[in-house]
Design a protein around this nucleic acid. Structure first.
Length: 242
DNA sequence: TATCCGGGCGGCTAGTAAAC
DNA sequence: GTTTACTAGCCGCCCGGATA
């Protein structure tokens, strides 16, 4: 046995360190994929995302991008921007729901300290998690969650000033307008003065949650219609329930 | 309890440099 | 040109901790 081989035997740490670096590289790249692929980014917000899922979604996304049927040029850029803003849009919808709940169910005033703190917290998180995925597109709309700064408009009767301000930015009106009409711009239908009971924790399909599930359908259909095989990715256990 | 994940370890292989 | 020694990287396996 050579001296170098003896030395190698004496210092098994080197191999450990190398392996550790290698695993770190893999995890770092997986993490980057999770932040880059819109589908993974969207799902990450709702819970833990497995490494295998990140890879599966990356494959789906790349297949969609490289599909011959996938639009080119400006429309492609618009679709990419739409994908990138999917999570952004969902976050915005959730905030609208929360504002509606706080002002109508909890009867909170906009000047309420607790109300302001909740909104400030969500706004700060929104800025953290909704950075543009495709910064090169440049033209992506910038979010503005400063609800309390918008005055209540006459077009939202029955709503509090805060709610009206939120609705004012709704689909088709604000930065989250969907470029392809109502078919791709799911919106919540608020019923003023309709009592919403959230006291039952087992309620699976409250009026607040159902439209968000619809977003998944829009998003998957958007890919699936252009690319019928896109979602056939040997992952029947993760097939979306539509 | 099942699953996921990180860490550690050993084996294997391709590439490279030195010796012949 | 061939052989030999060495290195770096990849891969599979096992184990233990964390988590749903």
């Amino acid at each position: 046995m050579s001296d170098k081989l003896k030395e190698r035997k004496r210092t098994p740490v080197s191999h450990k360190v190398i392996e550790k670096r290698r695993r770190d590289r893999i995890n770092r790249c997986l993490n980057e994929l999770g932040k880059t692929v819109p589908m993974a980014l969207a799902k990450q917000s709702s819970g833990k995302l497995e490494k295998a899922e990140i890879l599966e979604m990356t494959v789906q996304y790349l297949r969609a991008l490289h599909s011959a049927d996938f639009p080119r040029g400006r429309e492609k850029a618009e679709l990419l921007a739409e994908f990138a803003n999917y999570f952004h849009y969902g976050y915005h919808e959730c905030m609208k729901n929360l504002v509606h709940y706080l002002t109508t169910v909890e009867r909170m005033e906009t000047k309420d300290t607790k109300y302001a703190r909740i909104l400030a917290f969500l706004q700060s998180k929104a800025r953290l998690v909704t950075e543009p995925v495709f910064p090169s597109l440049g033209s992506l709309p910038e979010s503005d969650f400063s609800y309390q700064l918008h005055p209540a408009g006459p077009e939202y009767p029955g709503h509090s000033p805060a709610e009206a301000a939120v609705f004012h930015q709704g689909p088709g009106h604000g930065p989250f307008s969907w470029p392809h009409g109502p078919a791709r711009s799911p919106s919540l239908s608020y019923l003023p003065n309709t009592p919403v009971t959230l006291s039952n924790p087992t309620q699976q399909h409250s009026p607040f949650l159902a439209p968000v599930q619809g977003l998944d359908r829009h998003y998957l259909n958007l890919i699936g219609h252009s690319h019928p095989n896109t979602l056939n990715l040997h992952t029947p256990q993760h097939a979306p329930v539509l």
